[in-house]
Amino acid sequence: MKRTGDQLTIITRILILIGMFLLVLFVPSILQIGGLFQKTPGVIYIAAILFLVVYIGIAVLGWWILKPNLSKPQFKRFSSEEINTVFKTYGLILVLNIVFNYFMKIVFNSGSTENQANINSLLSSNVVTLIVFGFAGAFIAPFVEEFIFRGIVINYFFKHRAWWLNVVLSGIIFSLGHASSNPISFALYATMGMILAYTFKKSGQIKMSIAVHMLNNTVAMIITIVSLLFM
């Protein structure tokens, strides 16, 4: 029988979170390693398939760990009110991204985060990686990251304490998983993580934070790919 976070020791909960965190950090390296052997026929395709299989596997594992902690169905059809909330929340994240990037440009003369630079580098390495990583970033990453950084963190830590503690923790851990070269960049991802955590916690529906995250990633990925291909 699978156990909830309340039934696990704090050490076990920390180890589970660290393990899932390391898996998320590791998975892009599969494509990076494959890119080193572009001249070897088939290697990049094998790397792309392995990347997708492992990434989907992490999503399935994350859901398997999270599911016992959820007391109600999570993936019912979206209501019009929920759709409205998703777009409003995305709008808030978009505005905050613009503000943070503006101050990052003013203070550090940096036009984008280190995480975005890493994504650009990976996407521009070859066409196969661009397609596979672009798809995964838009449609798989939101499930993986929400199951881990929202679902597991919210249900494993400070669940019965002040409501904001695990929201803040979720944002900080989420930001640690995204490369930052300065405090403003770190604050950007932390704030986004906190907004997503609040969205999940308030609604009780992981689908809500997944939808916001997916909308954000899809728009960002389209803009990034278009800029790499045509600008």
Rank of each mutant, 00 (worst) to 15 (best):
Q7I: 03
T9S: 15
T12S: 11
R13H: 05
L15M: 14
L15F: 12
M20L: 14
L25G: 08
V27G: 00
S29E: 14
S29L: 14
I30C: 02
I30E: 02
I33H: 05
G35I: 07
F37Q: 04
K39E: 15
I46S: 01
L50K: 03
L50E: 00
A59S: 12
L61G: 04
G62Q: 05
W64M: 12
N69C: 00
N69G: 04
S71N: 14
Q74V: 01
R77V: 11
E81Q: 14
E82W: 01
N84R: 15
V86K: 01
F87P: 02
K88R: 13
T89D: 01
I93A: 08
I98T: 11
V99G: 03
F103L: 08
S110E: 14
S112N: 10
E114G: 11
E114Y: 09
S124H: 12
N126Y: 00
V132G: 05
V132A: 03
F135P: 00
A136F: 07
A138V: 04
F139A: 09
I140Q: 10
I140H: 10
F147G: 10
I148S: 08
F149Y: 15
F149D: 12
I152S: 06
K159F: 02
K159P: 02
H160M: 08
W163V: 14
W163S: 12
V168D: 00
G171V: 09
I172A: 12
F174V: 06
S175G: 12
G177P: 01
S180L: 08
F186E: 07
A190R: 05
T191L: 09
M192N: 13
G193K: 07
I195T: 09
I195L: 10
Y198W: 14
G204C: 10
Q205K: 15
K207C: 03
S209Y: 07
S209C: 13
I225S: 03
M231T: 13
